[in-house]
Nucleic acid binder design. Sequence first.
DNA 1: CGCAATCTAATTGTATCCAATTGAATTGAG
DNA 2: CTCAATTCAATTGGATACAATTAGATTGCG
Lengths: 153, 153
Amino acid sequence: MSRHPQLDLDAQLCFPLYAASRAVTRAYGPLLAEFGLTYPQYLALLALWDEGEPMTVGELGGRLCLDSGTLTGVLKRLEQAGFVTRRRDADDERRVLVTVTIAGQDLQDRVADVPSRLVESLGLNATESRQLRRLLRSLLDRLDAEVPASTSD
Amino acid sequence: MSRHPQLDLDAQLCFPLYAASRAVTRAYGPLLAEFGLTYPQYLALLALWDEGEPMTVGELGGRLCLDSGTLTGVLKRLEQAGFVTRRRDADDERRVLVTVTIAGQDLQDRVADVPSRLVESLGLNATESRQLRRLLRSLLDRLDAEVPASTSD
DNA sequence: CGCAATCTAATTGTATCCAATTGAATTGAG
DNA sequence: CTCAATTCAATTGGATACAATTAGATTGCG
């Protein structure tokens, strides 16, 4: 109906990507609520478990593509819940070091089956999953290259 | 490093999907700011141009997979900017009818090249785009089917 | 050493998101 | 017609997102 076919919602990549991302986040909601976690909080823990500790807020932001403005709130709530601790780096008072607590480590085992429970509900087979992951990765690499830390100029 | 390989951030679908979606939204930011639009506001206009008017908030929400809590704010700001009007349906006072203004229609021509400008920066070829769109659509269909209006039980 | 660039996280302000509740309107069974 | 169930959007409350600014700390040039 649009005067411009290229403005059709579904003909573009952006809307399906946007809607699918929100749908997956929504799907995680009930699973993570069992542990008192939100989706970004869960991702922050995945990064911490993965990368090893302590991590600075900046490092975590780089891993998750989230800025400090967002992470400060996420991490404060994770601290409030008792899953991480935040403290200034004695060597560089500008940095804040994030460490996982014992309770946070315990959580790792308890959420171990969350990914499989969710992937199951997505209904994609192994080939489709791999393909989708590859395409998204390619997209991300391309977009990250757009906004580098201004290596020149 | 994680005790559970399935908890690796990049091994899952959810994180690349989440990060890619935010990266694309970020990439749209500067392009849409030229017209005084945010990304969800742009999507709402795409839906209105596409589906024809007037549309109720509920219909728009169905098309964009957004609930009224989100759309109320988005539409109020679009109204404030002069791109749409909101009025109660005389036939059913519960409904709010959204109509695009002349200024909103004019915008359609002015943003017509935004998708191509963005797709260009994504750097995906036609085959990859089609594949990605198909996989995301498949994902969406699967997830929508999860939370129907409780057809049974 | 002195101090201007730089770096890091927090803060601020605007805009989403969504679950849950509210309130007004409509529908439908009796 | 009557009232309980349902529908629809708005409101409320909590949690992101992110740009821009701020404040404190560190670095490095002279």
